[in-house]
Design a protein around this nucleic acid. Sequence first.
DNA 1: ACCAACACCGGGAAAATTTCACGACGTTGC
DNA 2: GCAACGTCGTGAAATTTTCCCGGTGTTGGT
Lengths: 220, 220
Amino acid sequence: MSAADATILLVDDHSVVREGYRSVLQKQPGLRVVAEAADGAEAYRLYKSETPDLVIIDLSMPGIGGIEAVRRIRQWDKAARILVFTMHENAGFAVQAIRAGARGYVTKTSPPETLVRAVKDVLAGKIAISPDIDHELALSRISGETSAADVLTPREFEVLRLLLAENTTEEIAETLHVSPKTVANLHSLIKDKLGVASDIELVRLALRQGILTEVDLGEA
Amino acid sequence: MSAADATILLVDDHSVVREGYRSVLQKQPGLRVVAEAADGAEAYRLYKSETPDLVIIDLSMPGIGGIEAVRRIRQWDKAARILVFTMHENAGFAVQAIRAGARGYVTKTSPPETLVRAVKDVLAGKIAISPDIDHELALSRISGETSAADVLTPREFEVLRLLLAENTTEEIAETLHVSPKTVANLHSLIKDKLGVASDIELVRLALRQGILTEVDLGEA
DNA sequence: ACCAACACCGGGAAAATTTCACGACGTTGC
DNA sequence: GCAACGTCGTGAAATTTTCCCGGTGTTGGT
């Protein structure tokens, strides 16, 4: 490893998965994994102490999610290069991630070459999106349906995600370090923006748009 | 690698994740990954042709899911040793997987040692379950989830169905020829009986129990 | 540099709702 | 007969939702 190697921070709550990234990336010359984090808060801390050239981050993680972590890192360093690598094959998430400041969005079903390609593209200053998501985005452009991701701000989307994860207003306020009042206000605003009157409709809409998937549901 | 190595089939739809397993397992003497599959059907085919000593399989995959794959493999070979390795930290899935014939259930949040331990245990003929799921199982044993159809009176169940069909309190009152107040009272009582605090949890529970199915959701 | 637009945070107060306590009525089953 | 329960509803308190407001910080255009 030379001094000119690009440094990378890996963020994923599954340690064996991090091992996978590491294994794939280490085969590439010029790349060096310098740190790993298992959740968003830790990622933020490590970014500040290590200031790596690139962050590769998952979305669904305990505590603050990946989107929120992206937002915070970019707030701290506007030049941060962040590549989202996630299981969610969903245009909405991609839109939100890019809006929050990510420079790339690659799904975990992609072959390793796609990840490597995206890493290099992002390091070169380009925006990298995996082909399946490109396709999804094209489709949603065609159908013209206004999705949650389109009308919600990153913060609102994050609150929505936490609401769907069956947290209470107080727990969410705690997680995001804001007052419960703010969460309640956002909850109300979200419903307004999405044009639903009740929480029940809200969940149904989230299911239709793939923000909440059936596998997230909990015990059978 | 000696002829006495235990042979392993890896099944996961994320290639980079398979790379992670492989990397962790290859550090262990006596273990050899001989095949990889990206979905349930391929796993079944490969099992029949390779008859490995152990299968490590994910649950959420395209096509036939992991549970179904477990069932088929066990149907073909009653002695098959299958270890489920998944992101779902969920007692219900674990129960289903074990019932389908899996000999182990480990979550992806577990450290690599736990996976390695489980692999050895299953190869030794034991049943291996990661600590977090053990805990979940203990909890769910204590407070089993109340089945909606069980504890609700017919009238309450009917109101629940109408609530899920995204009707307002007033519309339901109209439909049932009762006062909106009664519907509101029942709504509250239903949540109480089912042990949920919010409407969001209510919908989730209904989905889990099949009262509301995803096909009811309306247009995409 | 300036301004407009917007995201974000939360207080205050009105409006709506949820929840609780309490009856009333009818049916069922012992 | 009567105890238990489902059903329906009222009133009042408790809580939540909603709306309106001001403040801050950032972004983008002129």
